[in-house]
Design a protein around this nucleic acid. Sequence first.
DNA 1: CGCTCATAAAAAGTCAGACTTATTCATACG
DNA 2: CGTATGAATAAGTCTGACTTTTTATGAGCG
Lengths: 233, 233
Amino acid sequence: MSTPGRGLHGHVLESLGPAITAGEYPPGSVLRTDELAQRFDVSRSVMREAVRVLESMHLVESRRRVGVTVRPKAEWNVYDPQVIRWRLAGADRPQQLRSLTVLRSAIEPVAAGLAAKFATAEQCARLTECALGMVANSRGHQLEGYLVHDVAFHRVILEASGNEMFARLGDVVAEVLAGRTHHEVMFEDPDPAAVTLHVQVAEAVREGDGERAERLTREIAVGALQELDILAP
Amino acid sequence: MSTPGRGLHGHVLESLGPAITAGEYPPGSVLRTDELAQRFDVSRSVMREAVRVLESMHLVESRRRVGVTVRPKAEWNVYDPQVIRWRLAGADRPQQLRSLTVLRSAIEPVAAGLAAKFATAEQCARLTECALGMVANSRGHQLEGYLVHDVAFHRVILEASGNEMFARLGDVVAEVLAGRTHHEVMFEDPDPAAVTLHVQVAEAVREGDGERAERLTREIAVGALQELDILAP
DNA sequence: CGCTCATAAAAAGTCAGACTTATTCATACG
DNA sequence: CGTATGAATAAGTCTGACTTTTTATGAGCG
């Protein structure tokens, strides 16, 4: 699923990236390229390439005579899929999952509203198909099958919105949903109400009722927020 | 404001990045590192670093024996601030502006709702200050002064939401607003209704009325969408 | 004619070493 | 006490040789 560290610099990144995003090197920590090259047993050219990538993610800053400085979390490119993966895999997982779920709750209703206006016939068909798949896998501990259709459903919505930036959140949503199924509490069958809501969203999109699609998707989002205890009592 | 190309590889990026995002090299185009190094008159090491950064942005893919292949737009990391800047500076500007405005319209209302719950006293004060600044600069062709406070206002909202991913959209919103003032149609004074809405959002946040803050911000968003003729008649 | 497998070519990938340059810190000087 | 000078340091750059992977070519054979 995720990009395996291709090339030596990729291997270095797969080790350094998670370490930095996990906070192993606190903001302001200074690393030296030569030392890192020795530690990872690679040439300086390779190490420099890795540092350049980390720099482009705003995880570190490289300055002459100083070294490679770790930047504060507030400056990281938190939308970089790679950064998201690293954080989801490490100690930052809970906070990352919450941030992403809130982000979803903001984006997906609007995306669904747009999808109702712009979805093609083929996309409507795929959407209905996904909803049916969710129903079919909603009982009897078929969590994996349910997940596949759930992910596909949200991907179609985001793509059908016609907004390229929404569409690019498909992978992120996929990882959040997968995370919920595999790591978080999801032992029993999914909430029947949620399943019904998905079916109804598919209906609304098919009928071109943007307002209803948005409202229903917002209900789904509320459910996702409640699962993580994100709500104001 | 934007990061000037620091170092040789940065200079190369500032030339190659905009070219690729502008579609000068159609998806599937193949570049060769050595040739690029010659063209930009830099060493291969420097060129390789630049390619690595482009690769981390998913703008290109580097494969042995093949070369550096330009990836289709659908795979780009469109949330990378650098990519956004490049696209805003080039031929893709209109589409990028529309995508970002739709994104804003989804995010900011939710952010305002959260801000009403989590904003500190200091943030509330700053917000009110910004709103007053907007009012003070709303008449008499003081567009620059208005812009400064408008940008600050939205930054505070996004930060006060308490969501790190929302907060990181501050720079993006700043560029969208600056773009509207400087490049798009914004000759006359800003819409008085919009100014009032901002003042009211500040009120709602101060009073902790999340629902009202969200609704009012959604109205602001509708205005922004209409400016770009994004609406379903 | 079409298939498989060996061979060659091409381009990225890697490494080592020498050199340059900017920045910082310490010291001496006015 | 502030400023200029200089030395130390780590990133930055370049070069050239070598390795590795992948693709294309073509020879041989069924």
